[in-house]
Design a protein around this nucleic acid. Structure first.
Lengths: 180, 180
DNA sequence: GCACGATGATGGTAGGTGTCCACTATCTTC
DNA sequence: GAAGATAGTGGACACCTACCATCATCGTGC
């Protein structure tokens, strides 16, 4: 394909590979109106794009879906004993949905729940050996995907974007440390 | 509540209002591991937060859900005659899902589809009077919500975030103009 | 002029996700 | 000891995404 809308890049994302560009209409003269200024539109659409790309790369590791599975592996791995309610809070997931995901991951022998000796209502979460093994691989893929997907940004821009998103996240989520 | 995790802000977001902070566990000493450096995690979580806030503000205007409803109103309004396939592409939505949303919006007398005289396979989209009226109100709410939600950022930071997200968006979506 | 491949839209389906609520066990406060 | 709050569980429901098959239409090549 000529120089038209093709974009040179080394790593095709999942969105790029799927045939999405309409062929018999010009998509280059769209008037975005205020959309061009809405952060929420861009956050949403970039999220869709990065999620599809990440899911495509993870699908052989994680097999089935499970929004929050990656986050759970990584955060439980880094915080053995973390509670479902804390995990749900940090990743902004409904508590009962969190419980269901943990049940599924327990069934897959990735995570186990133990009653907290400090408080018998609460559970502590720990990775099982299969979970530890998967965590290592998920970590590698996640880091690589993040680097590749956002490679259009140079190092300084990447740090800027991270800082700004963290600032927004920190502002809207109570009781969460400044991550990093 | 003391100075603990309460954050001073003028406009409580939907996420802030819902009781999400675990009460009997410390959430401030979480080790984010690599998550603290993953743009994808922040993009995803900020998206959840901003979507919930936006949905809360829009719910009386839009009544039922409809991911893409806001985008459709604004983009069809700004581009009368736009095609479903183009719209789907720009907002990264499955074409058949786009069609279903348009059917629902047609049923609500917000949007109409006309066979394109240029190509009878294609449809052109136009807002109906109810859609135009709703568009005006949705626009106001969207602009206000965006300003309030991202108010932790100053003007320069906001412009930075917008520029960086646009750059990522433009890189991963073929055939889309630099919005703005 | 016709066959074939491509395109735009439509309809159907399956699976996954998010949200909310009721309930139980447990803990704290009065 | 009662009452209210908390952590977790289970169920229900609505919504969303993704994919595929199908049809009408269009463009291209022979």
């Amino acid at each position: 394909m000529g120089a038209m809308t093709e974009k040179a890049d080394a790593v095709p994302s999942a969105a790029r590979r799927s045939r999405k560009v309409p062929k018999t209409a010009d998509t280059l003269d769209i008037d975005f109106d205020i959309f061009g200024t809405l952060l929420s539109f861009y956050v949403r659409t970039v999220n869709i794009l990065v999620s599809q790309d990440l899911d495509a790369r993870m699908e052989r590791l994680l097999l089935a879906g499970g929004t929050g599975k990656i986050a759970t592996l990584l955060l439980v791995g880094a915080n053995p004993g973390i509670r479902p309610s804390v995990l749900a809070h940090v990743i902004r997931k409904d508590r009962s949905a969190m419980g269901k995901l943990l049940d599924a991951m327990g069934g897959a022998e990735l995570v186990e729940q133990r009653v907290s000796p400090a408080e018998r209502r609460a559970r502590e979460l720990y990775l099982l050996p299969k979970g530890e093994a998967l965590r290592a691989r998920v970590r590698d893929v996640a880091l690589t995907q993040d680097r590749d997907f956002f490679s259009v940004l140079d190092g300084g821009e990447r740090a800027q974007l991270l800082g700004l998103l963290r600032k927004v996240y920190g502002r809207h989520l109570d009781g969460v440390p400044d991550a990093g």
